[in-house]
Design a protein around this nucleic acid. Sequence first.
DNA 1: TTTTGTTTACTTTTTG
DNA 2: CAAAAAGTAAACAAAA
Length: 459
Amino acid sequence: MLSLSCADPWAEGSVGLEEEVVTAAAQAEERDGVSGTDSSSCSVSLDDSLTSLQWLQEFSILGTNVPHHTHHQHHLFGHQQLGSDAPASPLAGDPASIGMPLTPGKPTAAAYSRMQPLPGIVAHGHCPDDVDYKTNAHIKPPYSYATLICMAMQASKKSKITLSCIYKWITDNFCYYRHADPTWQNSIRHNLSLNKCFIKVPRQKDEPGKGGFWKIDPQYAERLLSGAYKKRRMPPVQINPALRNRLGVNMQPQPRGQIGLCVNPESQRLLREFEEATGADQNWDPHLAEGTMLGSWPVVRGRSGLKRKQGSRNGAAKAPRRSSSPLLSMDEQKEIGPLKGDFDWDALLDSALSGELTLEGGEPLSPIMKEEDLTVRGTHISPVEAPAGSAEAERSNNMSDFDEETFLATAFLENPWPEEEADHGRSDFLCSSTVNLDQLFGLEDPLGGDPSSRMDTLL
DNA sequence: TTTTGTTTACTTTTTG
DNA sequence: CAAAAAGTAAACAAAA
Protein backbone atom coordinates (compact mmCIF):
# COMPACT_ATOMS: atom_id res chain seq x y z
CA MET A 1 0.00 0.00 0.00
CA LEU A 2 1.21 3.30 -0.78
CA SER A 3 0.96 5.89 1.79
CA LEU A 4 0.89 9.40 0.74
CA SER A 5 2.46 11.74 3.04
CA CYS A 6 1.74 14.64 0.93
CA ALA A 7 0.63 17.79 2.46
CA ASP A 8 -2.98 17.53 1.83
CA PRO A 9 -3.50 17.34 -1.82
CA TRP A 10 -6.96 18.48 -1.27
CA ALA A 11 -5.95 21.85 -0.30
CA GLU A 12 -3.93 22.20 -3.36
CA GLY A 13 -6.75 21.21 -5.47
CA SER A 14 -8.91 23.90 -4.21
CA VAL A 15 -6.60 26.44 -5.34
CA GLY A 16 -6.83 27.71 -8.71
CA LEU A 17 -10.16 26.29 -9.04
CA GLU A 18 -11.39 29.62 -9.80
CA GLU A 19 -8.45 30.58 -11.66
CA GLU A 20 -9.04 29.14 -14.83
CA VAL A 21 -11.85 28.44 -16.73
CA VAL A 22 -11.49 25.58 -18.54
CA THR A 23 -13.36 25.50 -21.42
CA ALA A 24 -14.67 22.51 -22.41
CA ALA A 25 -13.35 20.33 -24.89
CA ALA A 26 -13.00 21.92 -28.04
CA GLN A 27 -15.39 20.05 -29.98
CA ALA A 28 -18.28 20.14 -27.80
CA GLU A 29 -17.54 23.25 -26.15
CA GLU A 30 -17.46 25.19 -29.20
CA ARG A 31 -20.92 24.62 -29.96
CA ASP A 32 -22.00 24.68 -26.46
CA GLY A 33 -20.99 28.12 -26.01
CA VAL A 34 -21.13 27.63 -22.37
CA SER A 35 -24.01 29.52 -21.61
CA GLY A 36 -24.07 30.53 -18.45
CA THR A 37 -25.94 29.68 -15.75
CA ASP A 38 -28.33 27.31 -15.51
CA SER A 39 -29.02 25.83 -12.56
CA SER A 40 -31.97 24.03 -12.65
CA SER A 41 -31.50 22.67 -9.36
CA CYS A 42 -33.97 20.03 -9.50
CA SER A 43 -34.41 18.01 -6.51
CA VAL A 44 -34.30 14.35 -6.44
CA SER A 45 -34.79 11.71 -3.98
CA LEU A 46 -31.64 10.75 -2.33
CA ASP A 47 -31.70 7.12 -2.12
CA ASP A 48 -32.62 5.35 -5.20
CA SER A 49 -30.27 2.96 -6.62
CA LEU A 50 -27.83 4.53 -8.87
CA THR A 51 -28.07 7.56 -6.80
CA SER A 52 -25.54 6.57 -4.34
CA LEU A 53 -22.61 8.84 -4.24
CA GLN A 54 -20.29 6.31 -2.99
CA TRP A 55 -18.62 6.42 -6.27
CA LEU A 56 -18.20 10.03 -5.72
CA GLN A 57 -16.69 9.44 -2.44
CA GLU A 58 -14.19 7.32 -4.13
CA PHE A 59 -12.76 10.57 -5.06
CA SER A 60 -11.95 11.24 -1.56
CA ILE A 61 -11.46 7.85 -0.25
CA LEU A 62 -8.99 5.44 -1.46
CA GLY A 63 -9.93 1.89 -1.74
CA THR A 64 -7.30 -0.16 -0.15
CA ASN A 65 -8.18 -3.11 -2.18
CA VAL A 66 -7.56 -1.36 -5.35
CA PRO A 67 -4.45 -1.80 -7.24
CA HIS A 68 -2.22 0.75 -5.85
CA HIS A 69 -1.85 2.91 -8.73
CA THR A 70 -1.64 6.07 -6.90
CA HIS A 71 1.36 6.60 -8.87
CA HIS A 72 -0.30 6.36 -12.14
CA GLN A 73 -2.73 8.90 -11.07
CA HIS A 74 -0.05 11.29 -11.14
CA HIS A 75 0.41 10.48 -14.66
CA LEU A 76 -3.10 11.16 -15.35
CA PHE A 77 -2.72 14.26 -13.51
CA GLY A 78 0.18 15.30 -15.42
CA HIS A 79 -1.87 15.08 -18.34
CA GLN A 80 -2.81 18.59 -17.87
CA GLN A 81 0.31 20.33 -17.43
CA LEU A 82 0.06 23.74 -16.16
CA GLY A 83 1.22 26.36 -18.43
CA SER A 84 2.23 24.01 -21.06
CA ASP A 85 1.39 24.92 -24.51
CA ALA A 86 2.62 21.86 -26.08
CA PRO A 87 -0.25 19.61 -26.46
CA ALA A 88 0.62 16.13 -25.71
CA SER A 89 -1.11 14.01 -28.10
CA PRO A 90 -3.21 11.58 -26.28
CA LEU A 91 -2.13 9.04 -28.72
CA ALA A 92 1.42 9.79 -28.26
CA GLY A 93 2.82 7.17 -26.10
CA ASP A 94 -0.22 5.21 -26.63
CA PRO A 95 1.06 1.72 -26.47
CA ALA A 96 -1.89 0.51 -28.31
CA SER A 97 -0.91 2.50 -31.26
CA ILE A 98 2.25 0.64 -31.62
CA GLY A 99 1.01 -2.74 -30.82
CA MET A 100 2.32 -3.34 -27.43
CA PRO A 101 2.10 -6.86 -26.29
CA LEU A 102 -0.78 -7.62 -24.15
CA THR A 103 -1.62 -10.01 -21.53
CA PRO A 104 -4.96 -11.62 -21.51
CA GLY A 105 -7.04 -12.08 -18.51
CA LYS A 106 -7.90 -9.85 -15.73
CA PRO A 107 -4.97 -8.83 -13.75
CA THR A 108 -5.65 -8.34 -10.19
CA ALA A 109 -3.97 -6.04 -7.85
CA ALA A 110 -2.08 -8.88 -6.41
CA ALA A 111 -0.96 -10.02 -9.74
CA TYR A 112 0.28 -6.69 -10.80
CA SER A 113 3.53 -7.07 -9.17
CA ARG A 114 4.31 -10.04 -11.20
CA MET A 115 3.06 -8.92 -14.48
CA GLN A 116 4.53 -5.60 -14.17
CA PRO A 117 7.47 -6.34 -16.35
CA LEU A 118 5.21 -7.20 -19.18
CA PRO A 119 5.46 -4.37 -21.56
CA GLY A 120 2.35 -2.49 -22.12
CA ILE A 121 0.58 -3.87 -19.22
CA VAL A 122 1.94 -1.68 -16.64
CA ALA A 123 3.09 1.51 -18.04
CA HIS A 124 6.73 2.17 -17.88
CA GLY A 125 7.28 -0.85 -15.79
CA HIS A 126 7.55 0.87 -12.57
CA CYS A 127 5.79 -0.74 -9.79
CA PRO A 128 2.68 -2.79 -9.60
CA ASP A 129 0.83 0.21 -8.55
CA ASP A 130 2.24 2.07 -11.35
CA VAL A 131 -0.41 1.91 -13.95
CA ASP A 132 -0.56 4.90 -16.10
CA TYR A 133 -4.06 4.88 -17.34
CA LYS A 134 -3.44 7.78 -19.50
CA THR A 135 -1.22 5.79 -21.73
CA ASN A 136 -1.99 2.28 -20.80
CA ALA A 137 -4.63 1.13 -23.16
CA HIS A 138 -4.72 -2.35 -21.84
CA ILE A 139 -6.06 -2.01 -18.43
CA LYS A 140 -9.42 -0.64 -17.76
CA PRO A 141 -9.30 2.14 -15.29
CA PRO A 142 -10.81 1.14 -12.00
CA TYR A 143 -13.23 3.97 -12.00
CA SER A 144 -16.92 3.66 -12.30
CA TYR A 145 -18.61 5.53 -15.05
CA ALA A 146 -20.11 7.86 -12.55
CA THR A 147 -16.68 8.58 -11.28
CA LEU A 148 -15.40 9.22 -14.71
CA ILE A 149 -18.21 11.57 -15.39
CA CYS A 150 -17.53 13.38 -12.23
CA MET A 151 -13.89 13.60 -13.02
CA ALA A 152 -14.67 15.10 -16.35
CA MET A 153 -16.96 17.57 -14.74
CA GLN A 154 -14.38 18.50 -12.30
CA ALA A 155 -11.76 18.84 -14.89
CA SER A 156 -13.89 21.13 -16.86
CA LYS A 157 -14.17 23.40 -13.92
CA LYS A 158 -17.46 24.49 -15.08
CA SER A 159 -20.81 24.18 -13.59
CA LYS A 160 -21.97 22.13 -16.44
CA ILE A 161 -20.50 20.04 -19.10
CA THR A 162 -21.70 18.50 -22.30
CA LEU A 163 -21.79 14.88 -23.07
CA SER A 164 -19.27 15.21 -25.80
CA CYS A 165 -16.93 16.91 -23.40
CA ILE A 166 -17.28 14.05 -21.04
CA TYR A 167 -16.42 11.68 -23.79
CA LYS A 168 -13.50 13.72 -24.77
CA TRP A 169 -12.14 14.05 -21.34
CA ILE A 170 -12.35 10.37 -20.76
CA THR A 171 -10.71 9.46 -24.00
CA ASP A 172 -8.06 12.06 -23.50
CA ASN A 173 -7.24 10.83 -20.10
CA PHE A 174 -7.77 7.15 -20.34
CA CYS A 175 -6.15 5.45 -23.19
CA TYR A 176 -8.23 2.42 -22.56
CA TYR A 177 -11.34 4.13 -23.70
CA ARG A 178 -9.80 5.35 -26.85
CA HIS A 179 -9.55 1.84 -28.01
CA ALA A 180 -12.38 0.27 -26.23
CA ASP A 181 -15.60 -0.61 -27.79
CA PRO A 182 -17.58 2.60 -28.04
CA THR A 183 -20.41 1.09 -26.14
CA TRP A 184 -18.90 2.57 -23.07
CA GLN A 185 -20.38 5.80 -24.25
CA ASN A 186 -23.74 4.25 -24.04
CA SER A 187 -22.98 3.42 -20.49
CA ILE A 188 -21.98 6.97 -19.85
CA ARG A 189 -25.23 8.25 -21.20
CA HIS A 190 -27.09 5.64 -19.33
CA ASN A 191 -25.37 6.68 -16.18
CA LEU A 192 -26.11 10.31 -16.70
CA SER A 193 -29.72 9.63 -17.21
CA LEU A 194 -30.17 7.16 -14.47
CA ASN A 195 -27.88 8.40 -11.84
CA LYS A 196 -29.68 11.03 -9.90
CA CYS A 197 -26.48 12.58 -8.92
CA PHE A 198 -26.37 14.11 -12.32
CA ILE A 199 -28.66 16.82 -13.37
CA LYS A 200 -29.38 17.71 -16.87
CA VAL A 201 -29.27 21.35 -17.68
CA PRO A 202 -31.14 22.07 -20.84
CA ARG A 203 -29.51 24.18 -23.40
CA GLN A 204 -30.98 27.56 -23.84
CA LYS A 205 -33.02 28.10 -26.86
CA ASP A 206 -30.69 30.53 -28.45
CA GLU A 207 -27.78 28.38 -27.62
CA PRO A 208 -26.45 26.43 -30.54
CA GLY A 209 -25.27 22.95 -30.17
CA LYS A 210 -26.57 19.56 -29.53
CA GLY A 211 -27.77 18.14 -26.36
CA GLY A 212 -27.80 19.74 -23.03
CA PHE A 213 -25.39 20.11 -20.19
CA TRP A 214 -24.84 18.01 -17.17
CA LYS A 215 -23.94 18.90 -13.67
CA ILE A 216 -23.73 17.31 -10.30
CA ASP A 217 -26.68 17.62 -8.07
CA PRO A 218 -25.60 19.70 -5.12
CA GLN A 219 -27.78 17.66 -2.89
CA TYR A 220 -25.57 14.75 -3.38
CA ALA A 221 -22.57 16.83 -2.96
CA GLU A 222 -23.83 17.83 0.40
CA ARG A 223 -24.69 14.39 1.30
CA LEU A 224 -21.34 13.28 0.30
CA LEU A 225 -19.82 15.87 2.48
CA SER A 226 -21.80 14.74 5.39
CA GLY A 227 -20.32 11.37 4.99
CA ALA A 228 -23.59 9.73 4.29
CA TYR A 229 -22.13 7.68 1.56
CA LYS A 230 -19.73 4.99 2.06
CA LYS A 231 -16.87 4.02 0.06
CA ARG A 232 -17.81 1.90 -2.78
CA ARG A 233 -16.06 -0.91 -4.36
CA MET A 234 -13.79 -0.45 -7.21
CA PRO A 235 -14.42 -2.26 -10.37
CA PRO A 236 -12.19 -5.14 -11.17
CA VAL A 237 -9.26 -4.51 -13.31
CA GLN A 238 -9.95 -5.31 -16.86
CA ILE A 239 -7.75 -5.52 -19.80
CA ASN A 240 -8.83 -3.85 -22.90
CA PRO A 241 -10.13 -6.70 -24.97
CA ALA A 242 -9.27 -5.02 -28.17
CA LEU A 243 -5.76 -4.36 -27.23
CA ARG A 244 -5.42 -7.62 -25.62
CA ASN A 245 -6.09 -9.14 -28.95
CA ARG A 246 -3.22 -7.37 -30.43
CA LEU A 247 -0.99 -9.30 -28.28
CA GLY A 248 -1.50 -12.28 -30.36
CA VAL A 249 -0.21 -11.15 -33.64
CA ASN A 250 0.44 -14.65 -34.67
CA MET A 251 -1.88 -16.07 -32.27
CA GLN A 252 -3.56 -19.23 -33.20
CA PRO A 253 -6.60 -20.45 -31.55
CA GLN A 254 -5.40 -22.50 -28.72
CA PRO A 255 -6.83 -24.69 -26.13
CA ARG A 256 -8.21 -22.88 -23.23
CA GLY A 257 -5.67 -22.08 -20.74
CA GLN A 258 -2.99 -21.73 -23.30
CA ILE A 259 -2.21 -18.38 -24.46
CA GLY A 260 -0.38 -17.87 -27.64
CA LEU A 261 1.45 -14.82 -26.66
CA CYS A 262 4.35 -13.78 -28.71
CA VAL A 263 6.40 -12.48 -25.93
CA ASN A 264 9.79 -13.23 -24.75
CA PRO A 265 10.39 -16.12 -22.43
CA GLU A 266 10.70 -13.93 -19.47
CA SER A 267 7.42 -12.32 -20.17
CA GLN A 268 5.87 -15.66 -20.69
CA ARG A 269 7.16 -16.79 -17.43
CA LEU A 270 5.73 -13.79 -15.78
CA LEU A 271 2.54 -14.34 -17.57
CA ARG A 272 2.33 -17.83 -16.28
CA GLU A 273 2.87 -16.58 -12.85
CA PHE A 274 0.24 -14.07 -13.38
CA GLU A 275 -2.19 -16.60 -14.61
CA GLU A 276 -1.47 -18.84 -11.77
CA ALA A 277 -2.11 -16.07 -9.42
CA THR A 278 -5.22 -14.84 -11.09
CA GLY A 279 -6.65 -17.59 -13.12
CA ALA A 280 -6.77 -15.07 -15.87
CA ASP A 281 -6.75 -17.63 -18.54
CA GLN A 282 -10.22 -18.52 -17.61
CA ASN A 283 -11.31 -15.36 -19.14
CA TRP A 284 -9.23 -15.61 -22.14
CA ASP A 285 -10.98 -16.53 -25.28
CA PRO A 286 -8.51 -17.05 -28.04
CA HIS A 287 -11.18 -16.69 -30.59
CA LEU A 288 -11.79 -13.21 -29.62
CA ALA A 289 -8.28 -12.45 -30.39
CA GLU A 290 -8.50 -13.50 -33.91
CA GLY A 291 -10.38 -10.52 -35.04
CA THR A 292 -7.75 -8.12 -34.08
CA MET A 293 -4.38 -7.92 -35.52
CA LEU A 294 -1.71 -5.54 -34.94
CA GLY A 295 -2.50 -2.24 -36.41
CA SER A 296 -5.98 -3.06 -37.42
CA TRP A 297 -9.01 -2.59 -35.38
CA PRO A 298 -11.73 -5.06 -35.57
CA VAL A 299 -14.72 -3.58 -37.11
CA VAL A 300 -16.91 -6.46 -36.57
CA ARG A 301 -18.39 -6.75 -33.25
CA GLY A 302 -19.92 -10.05 -33.66
CA ARG A 303 -23.34 -8.87 -32.94
CA SER A 304 -25.51 -11.21 -34.74
CA GLY A 305 -25.39 -14.72 -33.69
CA LEU A 306 -22.32 -14.11 -31.75
CA LYS A 307 -23.81 -11.87 -29.27
CA ARG A 308 -23.19 -13.46 -26.01
CA LYS A 309 -25.27 -12.89 -23.06
CA GLN A 310 -23.24 -11.94 -20.18
CA GLY A 311 -23.48 -14.63 -17.86
CA SER A 312 -22.18 -18.04 -17.85
CA ARG A 313 -19.49 -17.34 -15.47
CA ASN A 314 -17.73 -20.49 -16.25
CA GLY A 315 -14.93 -20.71 -18.63
CA ALA A 316 -15.17 -18.19 -21.35
CA ALA A 317 -17.62 -16.20 -19.42
CA LYS A 318 -17.15 -12.55 -19.43
CA ALA A 319 -14.83 -12.60 -22.32
CA PRO A 320 -14.57 -8.96 -22.99
CA ARG A 321 -16.09 -7.67 -26.12
CA ARG A 322 -13.69 -6.90 -28.74
CA SER A 323 -13.42 -3.32 -29.43
CA SER A 324 -14.19 -1.62 -32.60
CA SER A 325 -12.30 1.08 -34.24
CA PRO A 326 -10.67 3.68 -32.13
CA LEU A 327 -12.97 6.20 -30.79
CA LEU A 328 -11.25 9.03 -32.43
CA SER A 329 -9.06 9.21 -35.38
CA MET A 330 -5.78 10.94 -35.24
CA ASP A 331 -7.23 13.87 -36.96
CA GLU A 332 -10.07 14.02 -34.61
CA GLN A 333 -7.76 13.86 -31.76
CA LYS A 334 -5.86 16.67 -33.14
CA GLU A 335 -8.89 18.64 -33.78
CA ILE A 336 -10.25 18.23 -30.37
CA GLY A 337 -7.00 18.94 -28.83
CA PRO A 338 -5.72 16.83 -26.05
CA LEU A 339 -5.17 17.96 -22.61
CA LYS A 340 -1.92 19.62 -22.68
CA GLY A 341 1.37 18.84 -21.36
CA ASP A 342 3.41 15.96 -20.33
CA PHE A 343 3.19 16.69 -16.78
CA ASP A 344 5.39 14.68 -14.61
CA TRP A 345 3.18 12.86 -12.26
CA ASP A 346 5.98 11.41 -10.41
CA ALA A 347 7.36 14.76 -9.80
CA LEU A 348 4.06 15.81 -8.55
CA LEU A 349 3.92 12.95 -6.23
CA ASP A 350 7.32 13.66 -5.02
CA SER A 351 6.39 17.15 -4.35
CA ALA A 352 3.33 16.06 -2.60
CA LEU A 353 5.28 13.71 -0.53
CA SER A 354 7.65 16.35 0.44
CA GLY A 355 4.85 18.68 1.18
CA GLU A 356 5.78 21.17 -1.39
CA LEU A 357 2.94 20.69 -3.68
CA THR A 358 1.55 23.97 -4.59
CA LEU A 359 -1.19 24.39 -6.96
CA GLU A 360 -2.23 27.82 -6.22
CA GLY A 361 -2.91 30.26 -8.85
CA GLY A 362 -1.79 28.00 -11.57
CA GLU A 363 1.65 27.95 -10.19
CA PRO A 364 3.71 25.05 -11.19
CA LEU A 365 2.72 22.14 -9.15
CA SER A 366 6.16 21.09 -8.47
CA PRO A 367 9.50 20.83 -9.96
CA ILE A 368 9.56 18.39 -12.73
CA MET A 369 11.62 15.47 -11.90
CA LYS A 370 13.87 13.78 -14.23
CA GLU A 371 12.87 10.66 -15.91
CA GLU A 372 15.34 8.57 -14.10
CA ASP A 373 13.72 9.47 -10.92
CA LEU A 374 10.51 8.01 -11.98
CA THR A 375 11.54 4.49 -11.86
CA VAL A 376 12.61 4.62 -8.36
CA ARG A 377 9.67 6.54 -7.32
CA GLY A 378 7.38 4.27 -9.11
CA THR A 379 8.59 1.37 -7.20
CA HIS A 380 8.03 2.59 -3.86
CA ILE A 381 6.85 5.54 -2.07
CA SER A 382 7.22 4.38 1.36
CA PRO A 383 5.66 5.72 4.44
CA VAL A 384 9.13 6.40 5.48
CA GLU A 385 8.66 9.70 3.93
CA ALA A 386 6.30 10.50 6.66
CA PRO A 387 8.05 10.73 9.92
CA ALA A 388 6.40 8.53 12.44
CA GLY A 389 4.48 10.36 15.04
CA SER A 390 4.57 13.51 13.10
CA ALA A 391 1.65 15.28 11.69
CA GLU A 392 2.74 14.05 8.37
CA ALA A 393 2.64 10.55 9.57
CA GLU A 394 -0.83 10.97 10.77
CA ARG A 395 -1.92 12.43 7.57
CA SER A 396 -0.27 9.62 5.88
CA ASN A 397 -2.34 7.28 7.86
CA ASN A 398 -5.43 9.02 6.88
CA MET A 399 -4.42 8.78 3.35
CA SER A 400 -3.59 5.19 3.46
CA ASP A 401 -6.91 4.58 1.95
CA PHE A 402 -6.42 7.33 -0.41
CA ASP A 403 -6.83 5.95 -3.81
CA GLU A 404 -6.23 7.16 -7.21
CA GLU A 405 -9.62 8.51 -7.59
CA THR A 406 -8.98 10.75 -4.75
CA PHE A 407 -5.87 11.91 -6.27
CA LEU A 408 -7.46 12.38 -9.54
CA ALA A 409 -10.22 14.34 -8.12
CA THR A 410 -7.90 16.72 -6.58
CA ALA A 411 -5.77 16.77 -9.58
CA PHE A 412 -8.51 17.83 -11.79
CA LEU A 413 -9.20 20.75 -9.70
CA GLU A 414 -5.87 22.03 -10.40
CA ASN A 415 -5.18 21.48 -13.98
CA PRO A 416 -8.25 21.31 -15.90
CA TRP A 417 -8.03 21.72 -19.56
CA PRO A 418 -5.83 24.68 -19.56
CA GLU A 419 -6.05 25.14 -23.23
CA GLU A 420 -9.55 26.19 -22.98
CA GLU A 421 -9.22 28.65 -20.29
CA ALA A 422 -8.64 31.45 -22.58
CA ASP A 423 -11.78 31.00 -24.46
CA HIS A 424 -14.27 30.98 -21.76
CA GLY A 425 -15.23 32.70 -18.73
CA ARG A 426 -14.14 31.77 -15.36
CA SER A 427 -14.84 28.54 -13.87
CA ASP A 428 -18.21 28.26 -12.52
CA PHE A 429 -18.37 24.65 -11.94
CA LEU A 430 -20.91 24.02 -9.35
CA CYS A 431 -20.86 27.62 -8.54
CA SER A 432 -24.52 27.62 -8.65
CA SER A 433 -24.62 24.75 -6.37
CA THR A 434 -24.88 24.99 -2.72
CA VAL A 435 -21.73 23.08 -2.46
CA ASN A 436 -18.93 23.36 -4.83
CA LEU A 437 -16.58 20.67 -5.71
CA ASP A 438 -13.90 21.96 -3.55
CA GLN A 439 -16.09 21.28 -0.69
CA LEU A 440 -17.42 18.23 -2.23
CA PHE A 441 -14.08 16.70 -2.26
CA GLY A 442 -12.84 18.27 0.80
CA LEU A 443 -10.57 20.54 -1.01
CA GLU A 444 -11.84 23.38 0.86
CA ASP A 445 -12.60 22.89 4.40
CA PRO A 446 -16.02 24.24 4.96
CA LEU A 447 -15.38 24.15 8.60
CA GLY A 448 -12.07 25.69 8.34
CA GLY A 449 -10.57 22.70 9.90
CA ASP A 450 -7.40 20.97 9.26
CA PRO A 451 -7.22 19.04 6.09
CA SER A 452 -6.37 15.83 7.74
CA SER A 453 -9.30 16.06 10.00
CA ARG A 454 -11.36 16.70 6.99
CA MET A 455 -10.20 13.50 5.64
CA ASP A 456 -11.22 11.81 8.76
CA THR A 457 -14.63 13.13 8.34
CA LEU A 458 -14.94 11.84 4.90
CA LEU A 459 -13.53 8.58 5.80
C1' DT B 1 -27.93 10.65 -40.33
C1' DT B 2 -25.82 11.28 -36.13
C1' DT B 3 -25.88 12.53 -31.56
C1' DT B 4 -28.13 12.78 -27.39
C1' DG B 5 -31.20 11.17 -23.94
C1' DT B 6 -34.47 7.84 -21.72
C1' DT B 7 -35.81 3.58 -20.46
C1' DT B 8 -35.93 -1.36 -19.74
C1' DA B 9 -33.89 -5.65 -18.94
C1' DC B 10 -30.42 -8.34 -17.65
C1' DT B 11 -25.72 -9.71 -15.83
C1' DT B 12 -21.91 -9.18 -12.76
C1' DT B 13 -19.78 -8.03 -8.58
C1' DT B 14 -19.57 -6.47 -3.97
C1' DT B 15 -21.49 -5.82 0.48
C1' DG B 16 -23.88 -6.93 4.64
C1' DC C 1 -27.26 -15.73 0.22
C1' DA C 2 -29.93 -11.62 -0.86
C1' DA C 3 -29.70 -6.98 -1.85
C1' DA C 4 -27.54 -3.30 -3.80
C1' DA C 5 -24.60 -1.16 -6.98
C1' DA C 6 -22.52 -1.12 -11.22
C1' DG C 7 -21.98 -2.61 -15.96
C1' DT C 8 -23.86 -4.04 -20.46
C1' DA C 9 -27.04 -4.17 -24.25
C1' DA C 10 -30.48 -2.43 -26.78
C1' DA C 11 -34.80 -0.19 -28.26
C1' DC C 12 -36.62 4.00 -29.07
C1' DA C 13 -37.35 8.99 -29.56
C1' DA C 14 -36.04 13.75 -30.17
C1' DA C 15 -33.09 17.20 -31.74
C1' DA C 16 -29.49 19.10 -34.65
